[in-house]
Amino acid sequence: MAENSAASALAQRVSEIIVEHEGLEGPLLPILHAIQAEFGHVPDAALPQIARALNISRADIHGVTSFYHDFREHAAGRHVVKICRAEACQASGGNAVAEAALSRLGVTWHETTPDGAVTVEPVYCLGLCACGPAAMVDGKLHGRLDADRIETLVGEARA
């Protein structure tokens, strides 16, 4: 019962999102972004509905979601920490910042802590290259990080 109503709630919301994007040229990415913003990932169960609405195949959509780093097939942890790995941040000490975060959480890139609290992902530049090392924690930007500060940030996220 509960599963059925969850499924119909999903279907309901997905169809609303599809309607909201009617009239756009090339609506697939905006729809996928909206679905991910709502559910934290792009649920497999949403694909047939999108496929029907846009007159493309499920495989087409899967091809798209798997191509882009942003789209998730499964929900991330409750907090997402994105740490810049690109050159300008490396030049200002980014590797040490990344190592500190990963070892503090005991995970590697793309992993989530076993308690489901924090997912750590690499990002290649946040446009903060003049104040690196940089990271984004749940959408909030942080510049001029060092090992201590990132440990505090991931510690707070985990708490």
């Binding site: 690109a86 050159e87 941040c89 290649y124 530049c125 446009g127 903060l128 290259c129 003049a130």
Partner: peptide, 11 residues
């Protein structure tokens, strides 16, 4: 899309 590391003029 400004993906180059070290760039932020577009932003």
């Amino acid at each position: 899309d400004e993906g180059d590391s070290g760039t932020f003029a577009d932003r």
